[in-house]
Design a protein around this nucleic acid. Structure first.
Length: 968
DNA sequence: AATGTGTGGTAGC
DNA sequence: ATCGCTACCACACATT
């Protein structure tokens, strides 16, 4: 079988997308014509071959021996006839080339060490990156570092310094050049220039070197200094920086800035940060930093944790009254921002980020008099009031004033319940009602807050929460209202309530209001009095029930000024009422993805955030929901709001983790699996929002609370398997190397070491719920096997790694399979001497017709059954996870997958690619979470080089195949 | 009947 | 430009 050299370059791959040396190898590639599409769909540009064209697999093996990266011998065969000086020069070139193609130190393991030892990085930095962007940043950093090393090396070798001709330039080379990109690169760097491998941010690049440009590029580069390579050469010759204009490639363009000042190309102020792309690692942080709604929700939690108190002194005693103060700042954001900017509060003011389709977070009463409302877009508000002043958010001030607010009032009440940054419920339990005292208290509070915060608050006082809410409504702005009816004054209460609007009632928003109006149409219900009168007849009373039993009962109570059970428990047992039940992150702004990998990275980041939040509150979750927003089919591609979500279809999916967990590496793959199920064949670009919710929360230390919250799973992750320690790097494990079955491999058992854990009492319950779930990820696999084993252990009182054939036959077929699989895992784990190839053949072959419809099935290592294939791949991955895949193994796999593409074996391809993705993803998440954890990141939990290699294989070679399938 | 899933509504500025 | 969050409940419907 001929080797496609491009593939051999996979792990020696160039990071330079545009590499002049790629020209050399393109025509040498073998004639996999049908794969040319795939080839072009990847970013990978082939490098010059390391092996002679047409090398067979067997030759490859002998050539490589046990160490497939023995490049020295390869070099010798290729360079045998050359003179020493040329050889030396080329070796330098090679080292240089490799340094840049291989510039992640973390991937500089033995596989790739191709360095002049002098140039090799002395330390292997413990690197980790969370996503592609970080990876790129690091890559660029390394590239610059390598440039520095090169300079040092050359200066040492030739014992001279080079004139810094290109100081303060930043040069990018586009396309094929003569001299080559590599040579130019070296020259530029040696002469003090900066070399950019990428053109991602054109702002930093001062010159672009090119001899040819496509017409598209001509337009793209029209405002930049595009110079021919002679400029470099002749500048060096002249020993000074020549005028670039004399070598400009693009002539007669008036847009070119003709000044000699190099810096002027840097058009934008680099201190002014542009908005971060959603693929940027810091996107989440930057978004949340500016999101008012995010602040509102997080503040609420913080404030409740900090300032809530509940002392219902004798509240159950009949004679003790309850005085509920509902206190709220008047148009909080607008007031505070107005103060900060010294605005006249009698003029219309609104707080918002932008000028057009930006939400108004808050507007003052002057603005409201024009009909402007919170949540309205600025453009609309400006139509209503052209003099409206837009102020920026002052989040720090909001938070500060809120702090003052609660600190000042904390000691003045028996019960304090923060409901928002500027709004809380404060309760007294006096024996007698002292009207005068209450109104004095209100005035005192308003004065106090006015002097301390310069803001006005409004207060509603009553004896039920509903009535307090309504009182507050009527007290606004800048006032207070006390309404303390006797029990007998039912008519007065009804009259008071009746004077309010429908949406003034808690839990009735615009949707419910619309619905109520629809129910009673054609008579329109505007005020609560309208509703009260409509409820007098039974038929119209029944209409309300269509809202749902709970809500209608609530409304009926509210109309009488009484609290429902919800409000009562909120007031009486706030700590219970506000206890944490779920944790989520929602992003519905700025979501624009091109590739699925970007989405996966994004999910990774979101889950990492959730995991750390969970850990910080010492909780674990066993259930998740992922919710997606995709733009509606007929809606415009870009909604009116910049980077907004527009009109969307919302779908969600819930799933369960194998057990309660707060581990990133457990959660992330599971959630991504649900994402895949949810996101069927739609273009990634249509994604507009992602939300991930973790629920079924349980406090880690407290089993009682845990079981109270969640009766469904009481598994623990205490015994969750840690991956085996890194394999010795000189032991090759290979898929292709069938013969070498006797190589030694040490594998630490995946099974829990201590079997005397305390989980037994819940086992039956657990087992049922666990086994119901699908088993695909290693985590699931582990728990399935683990619980099964626990069960058997109890029955047998000992552990056997031999299958009892007779006992097995008694069991139903499905069970037999399960047990066989389980024993296979045990055997695999216990064995110290096993080749990856000897994956146990334990799963009975399935009928392949269901998967391969018309064409004959395509074997992989003589296997046909998809499960067998994935099982073998799993073993392969597991055993090589920390050292990365061998190139020839990877090649075998890719070739197999390409055959699937070629013969249109869609489901098989999808099955295997998805599976691989899931597996690699799992390990990646594992190592990432381990390396994120400072306590465990010390030694063997660093992100191993192998993971990166696996990822490269996956992202660059395997996933594109799935995409090519989709395009077909 | 009990339990689970997906959807939709509300609240704060 | 622009930062359209998030916790929670209730319901309809599906599953067992």
């Amino acid at each position: 079988m001929p080797i496609n050299e491009n593939d051999l370059e996979l792990f020696l791959e160039s990071t330079s997308i545009l590499n002049s040396s790629s020209q050399n190898s393109i025509d040498k590639t073998t004639s996999n014509a049908e794969l040319s599409n795939i080839e072009h769909s990847t970013l990978l540009i082939p490098q010059p071959p390391l092996l002679k064209t047409g090398t067979t697999l067997s030759e490859l093996k002998t050539q490589e021996g046990n160490d497939y990266c023995n490049h020295d011998s390869i070099n010798e065969t290729e360079e045998g006839g050359k003179t020493d000086s040329i050889k030396q020069q080329e070796k330098n070139d090679d080292a240089f080339e490799k340094m840049h193609s291989n510039n992640n130190n973390r991937s500089c393991n033995k596989n790739n060490s191709y360095f002049n030892p002098m140039l090799q990085s002395p330390t292997r930095m413990p690197q980790r990156y969370n996503n592609y962007d970080e990876y790129m940043e690091n890559k660029i950093f390394q590239q610059n570092k390598n440039d520095q090393k090169l300079i040092a090396e050359y200066e040492k070798q030739f014992n001279k310094t080079y004139p810094q001709i290109f100081k303060n330039t930043n040069i990018y080379i586009n396309g094929y050049t003569n001299p080559t990109r590599l040579q130019l690169h070296k020259l530029i760097v040696l002469h003090g220039g900066k070399f950019s491998h990428y053109l991602t941010s054109k702002r930093n690049v001062t010159h672009i070197i090119a001899t040819n440009l496509t017409s598209k590029k001509k337009i793209e580069f029209r405002k930049y200094r595009v110079v021919q390579p002679e400029w470099i050469m002749q500048s060096i010759e002249a020993n000074k920086l020549l005028k670039w204009q004399d070598y400009a490639l693009l002539l007669n363009d008036t847009n070119i800035n003709n000044t000699t000042d190099i810096k002027t190309l840097v058009t934008k102020d680099s201190t002014k940060k542009p908005h971060l792309d959603c693929n940027h690692p810091d996107f989440l942080a930057s978004f949340f930093k500016n999101s008012r709604l995010h602040h509102l929700t997080t503040w609420k939690l913080e404030l409740q944790n900090k300032h809530m108190k509940s002392n219902p002194v004798g509240a159950h005693h009949n004679r003790i009254k309850k005085i509920i103060y509902y206190i709220d700042f008047d148009c909080f954001f607008a007031t505070v921002s107005g103060l900060k900017h010294n605005e006249n509060s009698s003029l219309p003011i609104a707080v918002s980020h932008g000028q057009g389709n930006s939400d108004i977070a808050s507007c003052n009463y002057a603005a409201r008099s024009f009909g402007i409302k919170n949540g309205m877009w600025v453009s609309r508000a400006k139509q209503l009031c052209s003099t409206l002043k837009i102020l920026p958010y002052e989040f720090d001030s909001y938070r500060k004033i809120s702090e003052t607010f609660y600190e000042l009032l904390y000691d003045k009440f028996d019960t304090v319940i923060p409901l928002s940054v500027d709004e809380g419920v404060f309760i007294d339990y006096p024996e007698d009602i002292d009207y005068k005292g209450i109104s004095e208290k209100c005035m005192d509070i308003r004065n106090l807050l006015s002097t301390k915060t310069k803001c006005t608050v409004s207060i509603g006082v009553s004896n039920t929460l509903v009535l307090s809410t309504l009182c507050l409504k009527s007290a606004k702005p800048n006032g207070f209202k006390i309404f303390l009816p006797h029990n007998t004054e039912k008519e007065a209460v009804a009259k008071f309530v009746g004077s309010f609007q429908l949406t003034d009632l808690p839990n009735i928003g615009h949707k419910t209001a619309d619905k109520i109006n629809e129910l009673y149409s054609p008579s329109s219900i505007i005020t609560l009095a309208d509703l009260q009168s409509n409820l007098s007849s039974l038929s119209s009373f029944n209409k309300l029930n269509k809202l749902g039993g709970k809500l209608s009962r609530k409304i009926i109570l509210y109309l009488k000024g009484e609290d429902d059970i919800d409000n009562i428990s909120k007031i009486n047992t706030p700590f219970n009422y506000f206890r944490k039940k779920s944790l989520s992150v929602d992003i519905n702004w700025g979501i624009r993805f091109q590739t699925i990998e970007q989405v996966y990275n994004f999910i990774d980041r979101v889950v990492a955030r959730l995991a750390s939040q969970l850990k910080s509150i010492n909780m674990a979750s066993s259930q998740y929901t992922i919710k997606l927003a995709r733009c509606k089919a007929n809606s415009p591609i870009e909604p009116p709001k910049y980077l907004g979500m527009g009109l969307c279809d919302i779908t969600s999916k819930t799933g369960r983790f194998p057990a309660h967990t707060n581990e990133n590496y457990i959660m992330s793959p599971e959630i991504k699996q649900s994402f895949r199920k949810l996101y069927i064949q739609a273009p990634i670009s249509s994604l507009r929002g992602i939300s991930i919710t973790l629920s079924n929360l349980k406090t880690n230390n407290d089993r009682d609370i845990g079981s109270m919250l969640d009766r469904k799973t009481n598994n623990t992750l205490d015994n969750f398997p840690r991956l085996h320690p890194p394999l010795p790097h000189d032991v090759p494990l290979t898929m292709s190397n069938t013969e070498n079955a006797d190589q030694m491999v040490t594998v630490t058992p995946l099974l829990p070491s201590n079997d005397n854990n305390n989980n037994n009492n819940n086992n039956n319950n657990n087992r049922r719920s666990i086994e119901k779930r699908k088993s695909r990820s290693p985590a699931r696999e582990f728990f399935n096997n683990y619980h099964k084993k626990k069960n058997q252990e109890r029955a047998k009182h000992h552990f056997s790694t031999e299958i009892d054939e007779n006992a097995l036959k008694e069991l139903p077929l499905e069970m037999q399979k399960e047990i066989q699989r389980e024993y296979a895992v045990i055997n695999l784990v216990n064995s110290t001497k096993r080749s990856a190839l000897e994956a146990p053949k334990i799963i009975p072959k399935k009928k392949l017709e269901s998967i391969c419809c018309f064409n004959p099935p395509i074997p992989f290592q003589k296997l046909l059954n998809p499960k067998e294939i994935t099982a073998r791949l799993d073993t392969w991955i597991l055993q090589n996870i920390e050292r990365g895949p061998r190139t020839d193994d990877a090649l075998l796999l890719v070739q197999y997958l390409r055959r699937l593409v070629k013969f249109n074996k869609k489901s098989m391809l999808l099955y295997i690619v998805d599976h691989l993705e899931e597996q690699i993803d799992y390990y990646r998440s594992y190592y990432r979470s381990a390396s994120d954890d400072p306590q465990t990141s010390s030694n063997h939990h660093q992100m191993p080089d192998g993971i990166l290699q696996w990822e490269k294989l996956l992202v660059l070679k395997i996933l594109p195949l799935r995409e090519s399938k989709n395009r077909a």
